[in-house]
Amino acid sequence: MTEKKRNSNTVSQIILAVVVALLAGGTAPWWWGEVFPAKDNDDTEEVVNLTEQEETNNIWRKGRLEIPISSSNSGRVADLDEGNLIPLGTSISPRDADIFAYHSVHDIIIQPGVSKGDGITFDAQFLKMADRSIDYQECKEAGSLDKISQHIPTSNIKKGSCICMRTTEGRLARFSLIKENYSGNNRSIEIDYIVWKKE
């Protein structure tokens, strides 16, 4: 038997033994990792999933709300901390209001709740607007940056945009405008929102 055939038989026997061992439920031999090195694990997906999980565990409340558009100091405003609407012009205090939508001369405006009487200061506060989703960390960092307008025309809000805010109870939240109804007597906007737990 020639040297070439002997080497070929030896390699064939090794391969056959490894295949049989693997099929039978055995483990790979010690040299398997040397011959077939494992690919480097890309931890990016794992980190993203972990971040999403942490964000999910940090959620205080989430959902959708349809907020009526007011033309005066009547109507209803959104309380994101409780996930409900508060009526205006009643004995119930609107102090917990986080989003107020009203009709101005040329547009529908949203603001962070009802002002403290001067039209410019609020118990809630808009922090950032972006034409994409905003996560908890970005919303948190926006709290220390320059503030955005507290009166946002809905015509300036693109589809898919997010607004980050601090609620009247001091929680970070984000919301997106997902539906508008500007015709008839029951005009409204619909938002999708997430409120995170206090740290």
Rank of each mutant, 00 (worst) to 15 (best):
Ile15Lys: 08
Leu16Lys: 10
Phe100Cys: 03
Arg76Asn: 04
Ser93Val: 03
Gly63Cys: 09
Leu80Arg: 02
Lys198Arg: 12
Trp32Gly: 04
Leu172Phe: 15
Ser12Asn: 14
Phe36Lys: 09
Asn49Val: 06
Gly26Glu: 07
Asn57Lys: 13
Gly83Ile: 00
Leu127Met: 03
Glu55Leu: 11
Ala124Tyr: 09
Ser183Gly: 07
Thr56Val: 10
Ser115Phe: 02
Leu145Phe: 10
Ile67Tyr: 04
Ser70His: 07
Ala97Met: 06
Ser12Cys: 10
Pro94Trp: 07
Pro153Glu: 05
Tyr136His: 15
Asn41Trp: 03
Asp40Val: 11
Gly143Leu: 09
Ser133Val: 10
Glu34Ala: 14
Trp60Cys: 01
His106Glu: 14
Ile109Ala: 02
Phe36Ala: 15
Pro112Glu: 06
Thr121Cys: 00
Val105Tyr: 09
Ser115Glu: 01
Asp131Thr: 10
Arg64Thr: 15
Asp79Met: 09
Leu177Arg: 05
Tyr193Glu: 09
Ala97Val: 07
Pro29Ser: 05
Gly89Asp: 07
His151Ser: 14
Thr2Pro: 12
Ile92Met: 10
Asn185Arg: 14
Ile120Asn: 05
Ile67Asn: 02
Gln137Cys: 03
Ala38Phe: 07
Ala28Trp: 00
Thr51Gly: 12
Asp43Gln: 14
Pro37Ser: 13
Gly113Ser: 11
Asn181Gly: 09
Asn186Cys: 04
Asp81Leu: 00
Asp135Ser: 14
His106Pro: 00
Ile99Tyr: 04
Gly33Ala: 13
Asp135Met: 07
Gly119Pro: 08
Gly143Asp: 14
Lys4Ser: 10
Gly117Leu: 03
Gln13Asn: 15
Glu66Ala: 12
